[in-house]
């Protein structure tokens, strides 16, 4: 039995009188891919922000298995500790790649920045690492010194993934990583994410409204509706035998291809 990597207990968030998410409980283990599905406004992104240290929840706790001290509440860590965690053990892939990248520096520098942020001071090493990672995400090496604004949407998303994985994080948060991309690009990206995640043994929390994406990527699924978790379980189990009426509706609304 391995240790819990991240654990959310009784997590709730309110925006004034508006509900973000209510009473969320789940654990995630190393190497596991957890999917969060639900319609727009069901609290998926609020939950992701809560557990990734971007937004302090109104109540409840988020604990992470830190390398030194074991399981600790991330909102009780000091700010330098939390920021260090975000730079090293965590990665955050945003829906809009422009939010997660520096658009005014080259692709290589985008990948290298996280290395420099944790103290890498050898240009050759940083360059090699950036080269490796661009190859891993199938970006041509002739693009290493080009600016992200000259990249296509799919390439931007892959660059963002490379930038996050370069420090070998243990947990990556992804917010709708494939929306806004066309279907063939989506397929390649999914393939890439699946390959990298299983190869590196990274735990992953993916938020999406796309059940196809979930079936492909995630081991376990959480279904959210109006801020609450209405169903959770193994992905195939939830999708093949949905119990909650909302999940049944969700599964039945997939367009047959």
């Amino acid at each position: 039995m391995t240790n819990v990597l991240l654990s959310a207990k009784n997590l709730s968030h309110h925006y004034g009188s508006q509900v973000g998410c209510i009473d969320i409980n789940f654990d995630i283990y190393p190497g596991e891919v957890l999917g969060v599905v639900g319609e727009s406004g069901s609290g998926k992104t609020t939950l992701l922000k809560n557990i990734s240290g971007l937004l302090q929840p109104s109540s409840g706790s988020v604990k992470f298995d830190t390398r030194v001290d074991g399981l600790k509440d991330i909102y009780l860590l000091s700010e330098p500790e939390r920021r260090l965690l975000m730079r090293t053990d965590w990665g955050i892939v945003f829906q809009n790649a422009r939010d997660g990248l520096r658009m005014n520096v080259s692709a290589g520098a985008n990948v290298g920045e996280r290395l420099m942020a944790i103290g890498a001071r050898n240009y050759g090493d940083i360059r090699n690492e950036a080269t490796d990672w661009l190859q891993n995400v199938e970006i041509g090496l002739e693009r290493i010194d080009h600016y992200p604004e000259t990249f296509s949407g799919g390439m931007l998303q892959r660059l963002q993934i490379a930038r996050n994985l370069v420090t070998k994080p243990r947990l990556v948060f992804m917010d709708e990583p494939t929306s806004g991309l066309d279907v063939s690009v989506q397929a390649r990206l999914l393939d890439l994410i699946r390959g990298l995640v299983s190869q590196l043994g990274i735990a992953c929390i993916i938020v999406s409204h796309d059940l196809g994406v979930m079936r492909l990527l995630s081991n376990r699924l959480i279904v959210m509706h109006q801020g609450r978790v209405v169903e959770q379980g193994l992905t195939d189990q939830v999708l093949d035998d949905p119990q909650h009426p909302y999940t049944q509706l969700l599964v039945s609304s997939i367009l047959p291809v």
Binding site: V105, S106, G108, A109, E113, M116
Partner: peptide, 22 residues
């Protein structure tokens, strides 16, 4: 200000990296 307070100066080297890369 936060970056100064926490000595988070990794990004300063991004500029130098860009120089050398180009």
């Amino acid at each position: 200000r936060k970056m100064h307070a926490l000595t988070e100066y990794g990004v300063m080297h991004v500029g130098l990296y860009e120089n050398i890369a180009h």
